[in-house]
Simulated assay, not measured.
Amino acid sequence: MTPQERLTELGLTLPEVTSPLGAYVPATRSGDHVYTSGQLPTVNGELKATGKVGAEVEAEAAYDLARICAINALAAIASAAGGLSNIVRIVKVTAFVASTPDFTGQPKVANGASELFAEVFGEAGRHVRSAVGVTVLPLDAPVELEVVAEVR
């Protein structure tokens, strides 16, 4: 099954690439890799939630927000790579989780993105990852994701 077929089976479609909030591009290709800028949990240009995980945002909701970040990252990667079918594998994911000082579940939040990549790409979706707790993210987003993908 192709990644596009898997997305369809999951009931997902790639959204339009979100416009940058500043002087940068959503993704750039360098050789056989595409690097994304930070991807927020936006749907149709609207941030799905704001606040800190462990306070205003429950961990389970943040997991779902990380999935949204992942689908936005796939759209940005596909745009830079010439399509979803040109993504060979997901190499590295960095998840930033705006969280309260006592929240330590950043890896579980990041699993929302990691599991989506595995569902779409199978073994090629398994990657190295960092999950980092931070004080605040742009627009008060609870989650932000950066991704490196190998492309053809």
Rank of each mutant, 00 (worst) to 15 (best):
M1R: 06
T2A: 08
T2M: 04
Q4D: 14
E5M: 08
L7F: 11
T8R: 14
E9C: 06
V17G: 12
L21T: 14
Y24K: 03
P26S: 12
A27D: 06
T28D: 04
D32R: 14
V34I: 02
Y35M: 05
Y35I: 08
S37P: 00
S37A: 15
Q39A: 05
V43Q: 09
N44S: 15
G45H: 01
E46D: 11
L47R: 08
T50A: 09
T50E: 12
K52H: 06
A55S: 12
V57M: 04
V57N: 03
V57F: 09
E58A: 15
E60S: 14
A61E: 11
D64C: 02
D64N: 05
R67C: 03
R67D: 01
I68S: 04
C69Q: 05
C69G: 03
A70W: 05
N72A: 07
A73F: 06
S79L: 03
A80W: 00
G83V: 04
L84S: 02
S85C: 00
V88Y: 13
I90N: 02
I90Q: 01
V91P: 01
K92P: 00
V93L: 11
F96R: 12
A98I: 10
P101F: 10
F103N: 00
K108Y: 07
N111G: 07
A113F: 04
A113R: 02
E115A: 09
L116F: 03
F117H: 01
A118E: 13
E119N: 06
V120C: 06
F121V: 05
F121S: 07
G122V: 05
A124L: 05
A124D: 13
G125A: 03
R126H: 10
R126Q: 13
V128D: 13
R129S: 15
R129H: 15
R129C: 04
A131Q: 09
V132F: 08
L137P: 04
L137H: 04
P138D: 13
L139Q: 15
L139Y: 11
D140G: 01
P142K: 11
V143T: 06
E144P: 00
E146T: 08
V147S: 09
V148Y: 00
A149W: 06
E150Q: 13
E150C: 03
R152D: 13
